[in-house]
Design a binder for these strands. Structure first.
Length: 550
DNA sequence: AAGCCTGGCGCC
DNA sequence: AAAGGGCGCCAGGCTT
């Protein structure tokens, strides 16, 4: 069963059963209590809910205690369809989508949301849609158009997986990542010194800054300003191209040690210090806002809180509630395994039989030198060519010609301005007009030819990586879609980061959660690659603290 | 003062 | 000769 739904102010809303082609299949139901209406329909029919945008609808349902099993997110689907058709830049929101259905000019851009604007929950669909269409009608009509789109069949699995991912993302924000403020605070105090007001350097940072100045003979140096650091070294007769940590590390100078330590602690202070705690952690939970498909490759992005960049050192603050456990699971070397399955490279598939893929490649091709195998494989997937990558990649190409050939032909497509797709049909954006102009100017010599080749190669690196990264995103989306409906009832997904998940559950449920994760990984593999020989190991371990995983 | 860019670095 | 993909966020510093 399909039910179109439009939220309105104050938890009211309208819904209506629709048929597969989006046409009305029942009366409009107006309700002053949308969560209650959804809850009862969910219990009775487990419908697929059709709505404009999951993050605008689902959080308030969750807050009211209502969970749904399936949805169809029109905005998300529109984006996937547009990208597949090479129309990556067109707006995907409901007003634009209905304008396309009606053959009307696109509505004026709503413009970016003001940075500080409070996101209003149950944000109503814009009052007036193109053509004055009723929003509930628009939901049905856009749904019908998406189903009728000849591309839809190819994207069916991707749409289902990504829509389910959006549900999972909202559920993660709702449950929140367990975060022990006291642990975080004592860590900050240990590393930085007592808390200071915003903008006032904590004691240990101030001391390091003093040591840096002293090491430069008392010259004024601002360690927060890279230019200032470069200049300070220049005065000492040391020319460096930048103040990056890896550049400093190669220098022999008394300022280097305090500078490196300063950079590390300064980052902790500014990115995950006391202000961060105040802003993002409350009632023992960190609740970031995820953006499913926020990255062109289909990876998730996050809004605020740097949710996908939690430093390792802080993972000790992520602890299960009393009587609970966190189940931590990550897909081991997901991207090279995805490449093995995508390319059908028999030899690489065999190496995937090992839980440590790089070790297997090393013993096959690099005399057991694992670091070389890893550099070679990463260079193949990222387009790296620096340093020793070239020769290592050559070895890899000889041993795994199908796998390397797969990414190289993706790179070639990019260099020629063509689109590439992931396993489930995520499609890379086409390069800009400026890029085409630059690379189209083919045969002239000198600088311009060099810039042209450079631009082409840059885009080639992007598409080379896209096929792998986006297919890995396909796999994790399928994983989440399966997993969220197969966890034990009291177990909740609380974190997801590219290729790893955290589940929070009562201790006795941990074992079942581990099993659910392992079998969801198997199912994701089957959904993407059928009966491929490639193994995708996903080890799930119950831990008290995230820091204890791995 | 606000907006934008850059350098830098955290995560995968 | 140099040559690594994708992000978000911060401070500094420039422009408007």
């Amino acid at each position: 069963m399909l039910i179109a739904l439009v939220p309105e102010a104050d938890s009211a809303g309208r819904l209506r059963k629709i048929s597969e082609d989006g046409s009305p299949a029942g009366p409009v139901v107006e309700t002053a209590d949308l969560p209650a209406a959804v809850s009862s329909m969910e219990r009775l029919h487990k419908p697929r809910w059709v709505w404009a945008s999951t993050p605008e609808v689902y959080p308030d349902l969750l807050a009211a205690g209502v969970r749904v099993e399936r949805c169809h997110d029109l905005t998300l689907t529109e984006g996937l369809l547009l990208a597949h058709a090479g129309r990556h830049r067109e707006p995907r929101e409901l007003p634009a989508a209905i304008a396309r259905v009606l053959g009307l000019p696109p509505p004026p851009d709503a413009g970016p949301r003001k940075r500080d604007a409070q996101p209003t929950l149950f944000e109503p669909v814009p009052a007036s849609l193109p053509g004055g269409v009723d929003p509930l009608d628009a939901v049905g009509r856009v749904f019908g158009a998406q189903q009728a789109n000849p591309l839809f069949d190819q994207l069916r699995l991707l749409v289902a997986a990504d829509c389910a991912s959006w549900l999972a993302a909202c559920e993660m924000t709702f449950h929140g990542l367990p975060w022990r403020e006291d642990v975080h605070l004592s860590l900050l105090e240990d590393l930085l010194g007592p808390r200071t007001p915003p903008g006032v350097r904590p004691r240990k940072l101030a001391a390091l800054a003093d040591r840096i100045v002293a090491a430069f003979g008392g010259r004024a140096v601002n360690p927060d300003a890279p230019g200032s650091i470069v200049q300070a070294f220049a005065w000492e007769g040391i020319d460096i191209p930048s103040a990056r940590a890896w550049v400093l590390r190669s220098l022999d100078h008394p300022a280097v040690a305090p500078l490196l330590e300063y950079k590390e602690l300064q980052r902790l202070w500014t990115a995950h210090g006391w202000s961060w705690l105040d802003a993002w952690v409350s009632d023992g939970r960190f609740r970031p806002e995820y953006v499913v498909g926020g990255v062109v490759s289909g990876r998730w992005a996050s809004n605020g809180g740097a949710a996908l960049q939690i430093p390792r050192i802080l993972r000790t603050a992520i602890r299960a509630d009393p009587g609970h456990l966190l189940v931590a699971a990550d897909a081991a070397q997901l991207e090279p395994r995805v490449l093995a399955a995508l390319s059908g490279d028999q030899r690489l598939a065999e190496a995937c039989g090992d839980d440590d893929l790089y070790a297997a490649i090393a013993s096959d091709s690099f005399q057991g030198e694992r670091p070389k195998a890893k550099i070679a494989m990463l260079s193949a997937m990222y387009g790296g060519t620096s340093g020793e990558a070239g020769p290592l990649l050559a070895v890899l190409r000889r041993r795994f010609p199908s796998a390397v050939g797969y990414v190289e032909s993706a790179a070639q497509a990019g260099e020629q301005g063509r689109m590439v797709r992931s396993r489930l049909g995520r499609t890379s954006p086409t390069p800009s007009d400026a890029w085409r102009e630059l690379t189209g100017a083919a045969d002239d010599a000198g600088d311009s030819a060099a810039r042209s080749r450079q631009a082409a190669r840059n885009w080639g690196r992007f598409t080379r990586n896209f096929v792998v990264q986006a297919s890995a995103a396909d796999w994790t989306a399928a994983l989440l879609a399966v997993l969220r409906t197969h966890l034990p009832p009291d177990a909740h997904l609380v974190f997801f980061q590219h290729d790893e998940v955290l589940v929070h559950c009562p201790a006795p449920a941990a074992e079942a959660a581990c099993d659910a994760i392992t079998s969801a990984a198997r199912e994701a593999t089957r959904l993407l690659f059928g009966d491929t020989q490639v193994r995708f190991p996903m080890r799930a371990v119950p831990v008290e603290s995230y820091a204890d995983a791995k």
